[in-house]
C-alpha cells in the first residue's frame, strides 16, 4: 500500500478509544477529519487489508466474558516450526509468538471456562509432548488508553 498520509495517521491515532456510539459513526469520524463518510470507510478498509488495523472493535477486560491464560512451551529449536503450527491450529489460541528465552513459544488461550482452557492445554501437551507453563492472570493493573503512535 502507498505510504500513510496525515489523514491515515489521524485515523489510526485519534480513534483508538471513545469510538462514536451513534448510528453512523464513520460520518462522525469524517466530520472530525474533514472527509466524506465513504472515504473514511474506504480508508479504514484499506488499512485493514494492509494488516495495519486488526479491527474496529472492543478491547474487553480479561475474564469478564470468558476465561484465558498465558502459556509457554520450551521447544527444542529444531522443532519450533512444527510445535508453533500445532499451537496456532487450536481455535482458542489467539496470540502465538516466539520469544528469546528457554521458554521460547508464548501463546494466549481464550475459552468459555477454566475447564475449557485446561482442555486446550492438555491437547497441546499431548500433541507436542511438552509440558506447558500455565500462567493465568491473577491481577490486572493496567488501564488501556490505546497507544500513541506518532506523539
Amino acid at each position: 500500500m502507498p505510504p500513510l498520509d496525515e489523514t491515515d495517521r489521524r485515523l489510526l491515532d485519534d480513534f483508538q478509544r471513545g469510538f462514536p456510539l451513534t448510528p453512523r459513526p464513520y460520518a462522525v469520524l469524517g466530520q472530525r477529519l474533514g472527509l466524506a463518510e465513504d472515504e473514511v470507510r474506504r480508508r479504514l478498509g484499506r488499512l485493514h487489508d494492509a494488516g495495519i488495523i486488526s479491527r474496529v472493535g472492543a478491547v474487553v477486560r480479561p475474564h469478564t466474558a470468558g476465561c484465558s491464560t498465558l502459556a509457554a512451551l520450551a521447544v527444542p529449536p529444531a522443532d519450533l516450526e512444527r510445535v508453533a503450527a500445532l499451537v496456532s491450529a487450536q481455535p482458542e489460541v489467539n496470540h502465538n509468538y516466539q520469544r528469546d528465552h528457554a521458554f521460547n513459544l508464548w501463546f494466549v488461550i481464550c475459552a468459555d471456562s477454566r475447564e475449557a482452557v485446561g482442555a486446550v492445554l492438555e491437547r497441546i501437551a499431548d500433541a507436542s509432548g511438552l509440558e506447558p507453563l500455565d500462567l493465568p492472570l491473577l491481577e490486572d493493573f493496567h488501564i488501556d488508553l490505546g497507544f500513541p503512535l506518532w506523539t
Partner: peptide, 26 residues
C-alpha cells in the same frame, strides 16, 4: 445494540472501543 455497548463500556467490561492497531507493520 448501541444501548448495550454503552452499558458494557460503562460497566467496565469493554475497556476500550475503537480502532485496534497492529503495531508491527508500523
Amino acid at each position: 445494540v448501541l444501548a448495550r455497548l454503552a452499558a458494557l463500556q460503562e460497566g467496565g467490561v469493554i475497556r476500550r472501543f475503537g480502532v485496534v492497531v497492529r503495531h508491527r507493520p508500523l
